[in-house]
Design a protein around this nucleic acid. Structure first.
Length: 582
RNA sequence: GGUCCCGUGGUGCAGCUUGGAGUGCACGCCGGCCUGUCAAGCCGGAGGUCGCGGGUUCAAAUCCCGUCGGGACCGCCA
């Protein structure tokens, strides 16, 4: 039907008669004698010259046959890849007519209401940007698969209909027709199955896995997303980090032409201390500065806190109005802080700097001088200080740092970071006194901290795990851990978590059973492909790299999902709808 | 569960603060003219439940309340 793609027509084809197919991107008619037709397919646009009148409209599907010729002097279009040539003496065959598109398909489409784009996604996908995104995604997936294959991993598919395990995210659930009242869950990840693969001697497993979590959506979160999921036997943390680095390097290389180099590492504790986040965006500074010791004997009651830190917003005083500062203070309180101390840095009478703040009068000269020195305060800066418990101080200042300083998604390059030595337990449940796992209950504790597991509960929060995250520009790309493979240690951790034998048996007894039959030491990882592709493309929203995504409220404007289902379908499943709760 | 922002012909916006006739701009669409354009140009035209409901008012796109849809974020996401 066609001899060449639109974007491929070039000087090499001058003189050849050929046919191209595509959509009418634009037409410029000059009366009954001449018309220019821009024909588009996914490779690009080529100009076709039609002598005589032709009734052609936007987005009609046509086949054009003509002779490639150089454009007359002065009419070359250097904005167009095919701009030195055109297809002349064209005959046009209309393969299909089309209604006018519901929104412009050129680069103005970026400003169109996203719901309109999603409702007509089949048209939206025709756009150059969406074609680029889809094809880049495919290239990334291909290079990841090749890399994993090359590293001796075998792709194994695991079930989509699995048993629900109550911990972790909320499950999507599928009712069973054969056993009314019983449900399958859709996997949040293939976690347990890949560990079973290790017991099964697969040695090195991977899967490009769809994962489903029924949690609230965000710019970087959809209900369903794609992960590279991997697990390897007889391997430790270093082995996993090397394998994943290699796969990510291959993916980045396939898009950017250059790899990721050596990925720097930081401990979880250091990440929290310096950036107030376990997924720090290290494209910019504004690090959290430790100030606690400066206020050890302070008269300022609000600063008698266990953790005081500050950040410096360089040169921001001129752009930061009082109302903006009040707004930031309110925001900080909403984030959990008791308050936010701000200080403008002005020049002092006798030279040097002076910190101007409503609370400056409660602080001693020494304290103010200490703050200015620690934060390297310069005239024109604004300083922000939070005093609270360590977790709150770091959390609030970490969010404030992002709010004030974070560069746009497509700036600052790709800054990968391994965050290692996560704590084994995230907190202690106030009601039960039990520790809450930070990762999942199969995570191997750090070998140096095993003794603390036996010690008093107060020491548990200090226990590190062999869990690690890969972070890119402040997005958590993925995480993994060395797994516990011995029953005794697993039992010990489950005991600490307050998961009794009975409950453990009920929830994941099959895994514990499997571990009786010769589980090798193993470790694994998973990272989000949607997020990686989005960041590689400079998109700040993963919907842009998903062909048919859902809105923030979980609906699909194209298909109308989710929809009600037929009552007979319900009864077949043994289900009945409750009236909406009011 | 919460905070904030948005909703006006097919698309993008202005109008809203300070209520006075569906007013305006750009694109698109339809028709006409036009033989080298390229987001073609020129002329003419059509196209509206100002998201929806209620309230205030002589009068509501505009003010108030509610609601729906969308977005960003906090919580949540082992």
């Amino acid at each position: 039907m066609r001899s060449l793609m639109c974007g491929e027509v070039g000087d090499a084809h001058v003189g050849e008669e050929l046919s191209v197919c595509g959509w009418v991107a634009r037409r410029r008619e000059h009366g009954e004698h001449l018309a220019f037709l821009d024909l588009r397919d996914h490779t690009g646009i080529v100009q076709c010259v039609v002598d005589g009148a032709a009734d052609l409209r936007s987005e009609w599907v046509v086949r054009v046959t003509g002779t490639v010729r150089r454009r007359p002097e002065g009419t070359v279009n250097d904005q167009l890849a095919t701009g030195t040539v055109e297809l002349g003496d064209c005959t046009v065959e209309v393969l299909n007519t089309a209604e006018p598109p519901p929104f412009p398909l050129d680069d103005r489409a970026g400003e169109v209401d996203e719901v309109v784009r999603l409702r007509h996604r089949y048209v939206d996908l025709r756009r150059e940007e969406m074609q680029r995104n889809l094809r880049t995604r495919a290239r990334v997936l291909g290079s990841i698969r090749r890399s994993m294959d090359d590293q001796g991993f075998v792709e194994v598919e695991t079930p989509l209909l699995i048993a629900s395990t109550p911990e972790g995210a909320r499950d999507f659930v599928v009712p069973s027709r054969h056993r009314p009242g019983s449900f399958y869950a859709l996997p949040q990840s293939p976690q347990l199955f890949k560990q079973l693969c290790m017991v099964g001697g697969v040695d090195r497993y991977y899967q490009v896995a769809r994962c489903l979590r029924d949690e609230d959506l965000r710019a970087d979160r959809q209900f369903e997303f794609t992960q590279l999921d991997a697990e390897m036997s007889f391997a430790d943390q270093e082995d996993v980090l090397a394998v994943i680095s290699t796969a990510v390097d291959a993916a980045v290389r396939s898009v950017r032409g250059e790899g990721i180099g050596e990925v720097p590492r930081t401990s979880w504790r250091e990440a929290m201390d310096r950036y107030g986040s376990d997924k720090p965006d290290v494209r910019f500074g504004m690090e959290l500065t430790e100030l606690t010791d400066l206020f050890s004997a302070t008269e300022f009651k609000a600063f008698r806190a266990s953790s005081i830190k500050g950040i410096r917003h360089e040169g921001a005083a001129g752009d930061t109005s009082r109302s903006r500062l009040d707004e930031l203070t309110e925001t900080a309180v909403r984030w959990g802080a008791k308050g936010l101390v701000w200080m403008r840095v002005e020049s002092a009478d006798g030279g040097g700097v002076q910190l101007v703040s409503p609370v400056a009068k409660f602080m001693s000269e020494t304290e103010l001088a200490g703050v200015a020195e620690r934060l390297d305060a310069r005239v024109g800066d604004v300083l922000y200080l939070v005093a609270d418990e360590w977790a709150t101080t770091t959390h609030v200042l970490g969010l404030l740092r992002l709010e004030l300083g974070r560069p746009p998604t497509d700036e600052g390059g790709l800054r990968f970071l391994w965050v290692v030595d996560f704590p084994l337990f995230e907190s202690v449940d106030a009601a039960t006194g039990r520790p809450v796992p930070a990762h999942h209950p199969f995570t191997m504790p750090h070998p140096d901290d095993l003794a603390a597991l036996e010690g008093p509960a107060s020491g548990l929060l200090g226990v590190r795990s062999q869990a690690y995250d890969l972070v890119l520009n402040g997005w958590e790309l993925g995480s993994g851990s060395v797994r516990i493979h011995r029953r005794e240690l697993q039992q010990q951790v489950l005991d600490l978590l307050g998961i009794g034998v009975e409950e453990a048996t009920e929830r994941f007894g099959f895994l514990l059973d499997a571990f009786r039959y010769g589980a090798p030491p193993h470790a694994g990882f998973a990272f989000g492909v949607d997020r990686l592709v989005a960041l590689l493309l400079g998109e700040d929203n993963i919907r842009e790299v998903i062909a048919f995504p859902k809105t923030q409220s979980g609906t699909d404007p194209l298909t109308g999902a989710p929809t009600e289902i037929d009552p007979t379908q319900l009864s077949e499943l043994g289900l009945r709808s409750l009236p909406p709760q009011g």
